[in-house]
Simulated scan of single mutants.
Amino acid sequence: MEISVIDVPENNRYEARSDGSTAGFAAYTLTDELIVFTHTEVDPAFEGKGVGGALVRGALDDVRKHGKRSVLPVCPFVKSWIGRHPEYADLVYDAPATTAKD
Protein backbone atom coordinates (compact mmCIF):
# COMPACT_ATOMS: atom_id res chain seq x y z
CA MET A 1 0.00 0.00 0.00
CA GLU A 2 1.43 3.35 -1.10
CA ILE A 3 1.01 6.17 1.44
CA SER A 4 1.68 9.81 0.64
CA VAL A 5 1.77 12.52 3.29
CA ILE A 6 0.84 16.09 2.47
CA ASP A 7 0.45 19.27 4.46
CA VAL A 8 -3.06 20.73 4.25
CA PRO A 9 -2.49 24.11 5.92
CA GLU A 10 -6.05 25.32 5.37
CA ASN A 11 -7.16 22.45 7.66
CA ASN A 12 -4.17 22.71 10.02
CA ARG A 13 -3.17 19.11 9.48
CA TYR A 14 -1.01 16.66 7.63
CA GLU A 15 -2.93 13.98 5.80
CA ALA A 16 -1.90 10.45 4.89
CA ARG A 17 -3.46 9.42 1.62
CA SER A 18 -3.73 6.07 -0.10
CA ASP A 19 -5.34 5.61 -3.52
CA GLY A 20 -7.03 9.01 -3.27
CA SER A 21 -8.55 8.33 0.17
CA THR A 22 -7.60 10.09 3.37
CA ALA A 23 -6.25 7.30 5.54
CA GLY A 24 -5.40 9.46 8.54
CA PHE A 25 -4.37 12.88 9.73
CA ALA A 26 -2.17 14.65 12.26
CA ALA A 27 -3.70 17.92 13.42
CA TYR A 28 -1.46 20.81 14.42
CA THR A 29 -1.42 24.38 15.66
CA LEU A 30 1.27 26.80 14.53
CA THR A 31 3.10 29.56 16.36
CA ASP A 32 6.03 31.57 15.02
CA GLU A 33 8.47 29.08 16.55
CA LEU A 34 6.47 25.87 17.03
CA ILE A 35 4.34 23.29 15.31
CA VAL A 36 2.22 21.73 18.04
CA PHE A 37 0.88 18.29 17.09
CA THR A 38 -2.41 17.99 18.97
CA HIS A 39 -4.15 14.89 17.64
CA THR A 40 -3.50 11.99 15.28
CA GLU A 41 -6.21 9.77 13.85
CA VAL A 42 -6.16 6.83 11.45
CA ASP A 43 -9.30 5.72 9.62
CA PRO A 44 -10.35 2.31 11.01
CA ALA A 45 -10.17 0.82 7.50
CA PHE A 46 -6.42 1.57 7.48
CA GLU A 47 -5.50 0.61 11.06
CA GLY A 48 -2.63 -1.81 11.46
CA LYS A 49 -1.17 -0.99 8.05
CA GLY A 50 1.57 1.43 9.09
CA VAL A 51 -0.38 4.57 8.27
CA GLY A 52 0.20 6.26 11.64
CA GLY A 53 3.95 5.80 11.50
CA ALA A 54 4.16 6.88 7.87
CA LEU A 55 2.05 9.93 8.70
CA VAL A 56 4.24 11.06 11.59
CA ARG A 57 7.47 10.36 9.69
CA GLY A 58 6.22 12.31 6.66
CA ALA A 59 5.06 15.24 8.76
CA LEU A 60 8.32 15.43 10.70
CA ASP A 61 10.37 15.14 7.53
CA ASP A 62 8.42 18.10 6.15
CA VAL A 63 9.00 20.11 9.33
CA ARG A 64 12.73 19.32 9.11
CA LYS A 65 12.84 20.28 5.41
CA HIS A 66 11.38 23.72 6.11
CA GLY A 67 13.56 24.20 9.19
CA LYS A 68 11.51 27.04 10.66
CA ARG A 69 9.83 25.48 13.68
CA SER A 70 10.45 23.12 16.56
CA VAL A 71 7.97 20.35 17.29
CA LEU A 72 5.87 20.22 20.44
CA PRO A 73 4.27 16.75 20.50
CA VAL A 74 1.16 17.14 22.66
CA CYS A 75 -0.44 14.18 20.89
CA PRO A 76 0.53 10.96 22.73
CA PHE A 77 0.96 9.04 19.46
CA VAL A 78 3.40 11.59 18.00
CA LYS A 79 5.26 11.81 21.31
CA SER A 80 5.68 8.03 21.62
CA TRP A 81 6.65 7.69 17.94
CA ILE A 82 9.44 10.23 18.39
CA GLY A 83 10.52 8.34 21.52
CA ARG A 84 10.96 5.21 19.40
CA HIS A 85 12.78 7.11 16.64
CA PRO A 86 15.53 9.15 18.33
CA GLU A 87 16.77 10.45 14.98
CA TYR A 88 13.83 12.88 15.17
CA ALA A 89 14.44 13.99 18.78
CA ASP A 90 16.40 17.06 17.65
CA LEU A 91 13.17 18.52 16.24
CA VAL A 92 11.47 18.54 19.64
CA TYR A 93 11.12 21.88 21.38
CA ASP A 94 13.47 22.20 24.35
CA ALA A 95 15.11 18.84 23.62
CA PRO A 96 18.34 18.35 25.52
CA ALA A 97 21.41 18.95 23.41
CA THR A 98 23.35 15.85 22.50
CA THR A 99 27.03 15.71 23.30
CA ALA A 100 29.70 13.94 21.33
CA LYS A 101 31.35 11.03 23.08
CA ASP A 102 35.10 10.49 22.77
Results as ranks from 00 to 15, higher is better:
22 T>S: 08
4 S>D: 11
87 E>Q: 13
100 A>Q: 12
60 L>C: 05
80 S>K: 13
80 S>R: 12
15 E>C: 12
63 V>P: 07
18 S>A: 13
99 T>A: 15
71 V>W: 04
82 I>M: 07
1 M>I: 11
3 I>S: 06
93 Y>G: 02
34 L>H: 14
37 F>Q: 04
53 G>M: 09
26 A>R: 02
100 A>C: 03
59 A>V: 04
74 V>F: 09
5 V>D: 00
76 P>I: 07
50 G>L: 09
54 A>L: 02
100 A>T: 13
91 L>Y: 04
87 E>M: 02
29 T>C: 06
96 P>C: 03
16 A>L: 09
65 K>I: 02
8 V>K: 09
86 P>A: 11
5 V>W: 08
32 D>T: 15
35 I>V: 13
12 N>I: 12
57 R>W: 07
49 K>H: 14
95 A>S: 12
35 I>A: 10
51 V>M: 00
1 M>N: 11
47 E>N: 08
14 Y>N: 08
14 Y>T: 06
83 G>K: 08
96 P>N: 07
69 R>Q: 14
64 R>K: 14
48 G>T: 04
6 I>K: 07
7 D>S: 15
56 V>F: 04
21 S>T: 08
36 V>L: 04
39 H>E: 01
78 V>L: 03
20 G>N: 08
60 L>K: 10
41 E>Q: 07
92 V>G: 11
43 D>Q: 13
8 V>C: 04
91 L>K: 01
45 A>E: 10
61 D>Q: 13
85 H>D: 13
77 F>P: 01
17 R>C: 13
51 V>K: 00
72 L>Q: 04
50 G>C: 12
24 G>M: 02
17 R>I: 03
18 S>P: 02
32 D>Y: 07
71 V>M: 04
5 V>Y: 08
83 G>T: 06
82 I>G: 05
45 A>N: 11
13 R>H: 05
54 A>H: 09
21 S>N: 12
41 E>I: 02
84 R>K: 15
18 S>E: 02
4 S>A: 13
75 C>W: 00
42 V>N: 07
72 L>M: 11
29 T>E: 15
62 D>V: 00
36 V>Y: 00
89 A>Q: 09
81 W>M: 01
39 H>S: 01
11 N>M: 07
99 T>V: 15
53 G>L: 09
10 E>Q: 14
32 D>C: 00
71 V>E: 10
89 A>N: 09
2 E>L: 10
31 T>Q: 07
28 Y>D: 10
60 L>Y: 05
85 H>Y: 09
33 E>A: 13
86 P>I: 08
74 V>I: 15
58 G>K: 00
27 A>M: 12
31 T>W: 05
60 L>V: 07
97 A>F: 09
100 A>H: 13
21 S>Y: 06
34 L>G: 00
36 V>A: 00
